[in-house]
Design a protein around this nucleic acid. Sequence first.
DNA 1: CACGAGACCTGTTCGC
DNA 2: TGCGAACAGGTCTCGT
Length: 274
Amino acid sequence: MPELPEVETIARNLRQGIAGQPAVIGRHILETNLLWARTLAEPGPDEFRERLVGQVIENTRRRGKFLVFALSHDWLLFHLRMSGDLLVRPAGTPPSTHDRLLLELEGDLQLAFNDARKFGRVWLVNEVDRVLDGLGPEPLDEAFTAHDLFDRLQRTHRQLKPLLLDQTFLAGLGNIYADEALHLASLHPLTPANRLTEEQAGVLLTSIRAVLEDGISRNGASIDWVYRGGDFQNYFRVYQRTGEPCPKCGTPIARIVVGQRGTHYCPHCQPLSS
DNA sequence: CACGAGACCTGTTCGC
DNA sequence: TGCGAACAGGTCTCGT
């Protein structure tokens, strides 16, 4: 699940609450229950519990694919990786399958980090930049311009698809939204970055923003059993649509493997040589 | 520097 | 039906 739109949706829902799920802002953390030790990137389990209990959740936001909790004295960060999710439940709910960390909150709430594949990680740090350092620009940040993107593209000959997945190049895109953005921009996933014109770079940025904003407006994408509540999976243009007609021209969508990731594109709308 | 392979994990789907 | 292979929203590390 968790690319920029899904993480953004989770951060918003935790901050504002939704029907049947109160906001977590302003609540004390009363207790923690660590169920899979390796979930904790830092610190160790004992220090984690000692430092965390008693703090107040002041705010929740997103940076790249990280969920960032501003606490009264520290920062609590989650990276959901492939299958992580954060769920709000009634206090004292017994652990369910794949729960890795539970936080009992003031107001009879429990915040559960659930992660089937155990790739997700949690940090409790006093300096947030130490974890987020190295992340590339936020694609939705208005201060990031088409010229900035063109500039960065010019500096490498890497293929567009793996480059867009590189979080130091741009923060927040994953396999779904990279494929969707490249299709919207009519760019082949294997195009060398420094071959784009400034105009094409502009189209690419516009396309990236369009698919991310579309994803956010539909609360992200829900596929299989992971992350419910999103709707964007019903609007994929190419992702996991191998063999189905391209929404622009009807040509069957092709699937190739790039950097060990399934990559979906239209051979007609996204030619390599243009 | 760029790229590919392997690791980390579990669950579902596909092909025979 | 059963069973192994392939595949899945991500990132890190190592070898070439």
